[in-house]
Design a protein around this nucleic acid. Structure first.
Lengths: 184, 184
DNA sequence: GTCTATAAAATGATAGAC
DNA sequence: GTCTATCATTTTATAGAC
């Protein structure tokens, strides 16, 4: 029972353009042209451009954690898992040509859009919570307590990603990983 | 010898709008209206909208370090200075309504624009260098070497700012400061 | 240097045929 | 559900009067 190949093509194309060249720089015209669908077909599947944005964020959020958990599956030790999150993000940085975190980008571009800020929050809090669970299980040097160590890992990661988008490289995410290795 | 009150008004208004609502969402029309100047006056002082963007970045960069150095002047101890940079940025977060780092925002919005990426790089490398000089002078616990400690402080700061824009608060920048206090 | 008027293109969205 | 044709706005930028 195929939902609609057209709808998929619209969301795929829009997602790619929203991330690569920005939400506000991407026009409806470009989406329908590159997706090879008719103007009204877009509006049949999505009420407005802003609904496309929310669908893009929802799908990105879902896939992000699916891919993370897939990537971490081979590891059992919490220390290894924590460090592997950095590898996951470094690999993603390369794959995405160092354009940075989807949720950081959209916050900078369209945080006033209805529903955006809440979705960004949910995404980042889930990552922080994920790190927190691993920190609780890891035997670390206790240079910092569990809560502070959680924030340290989370913030080094987010900082590395943001700076990586400015420098267009993974240098700082790699540096962040080495720092965490020393603190654990 | 007043350069031009009009030119100042244009750049003031454009800068405010570029940061508050975004570069791509700010039209020439809105700038000329809010600055109360004529359309052609803008193009008399700036060749194009993109030149306004570069002027905005240059002025923001210059003022940023002037204000930082002014803020740090009362402190002499390198440890105090390092921690005060966090206070400087926390105060700025509040003043700017948690909209995040100017240079992170513009990277997300318009990093392809001629001259933007280079200006962002210069700004961030200068901050990193500033932190590095202080780290070299501070007597710290040597949990990390000087280079890693520099990156730690820099990345915790950048992470705190980026996350602060998503959460619309200073919680993580304050957390970053406490972490650095523990690591120094 | 500042102004008004206007151009040419792109924007998001809708109507109505098939 | 998909299509083409079209709408009203808004976009960046220029011409030419004063």
């Amino acid at each position: 029972m195929r939902e609609s190949a057209v709808k998929d093509r619209i969301l795929d194309t829009a997602s790619r353009l929203f991330y690569d060249q920005g939400y506000n720089l991407t026009g409806i015209n470009q989406i329908i042209e590159e997706a090879s669908i008719a103007r009204a077909s877009l509006y049949n599947h999505f009420e407005a451009k802003s609904d496309l944005l929310l669908a893009y964020l929802d799908r990105t959020h879902q896939r992000w954690f699916e891919e993370l958990e897939e990537f971490l599956r081979p590891f059992t030790d919490p220390r290894e898992k924590l460090l592997a999150i950095f590898d996951f993000r470094i690999r993603r940085q390369q794959k995405l040509k160092y354009r940075g975190c989807h949720f950081n980008k959209i916050t900078a571009e369209a945080c006033e859009e209805e529903g955006v800020a809440q979705r960004v929050l949910v995404h980042k809090e889930r990552l922080r919570g994920y790190i927190h669970q691993l920190v609780l299980r890891v035997k670390h040097r206790r240079l910092l307590d569990d809560d502070m160590l959680t924030d340290t890992i989370f913030l080094l990661m987010e900082g590395g990603l943001a700076v990586g988008a400015m420098y267009r490289n993974s240098k700082d995410t790699k540096s962040a990983k080495r720092i965490v290795e020393n603190l654990l």
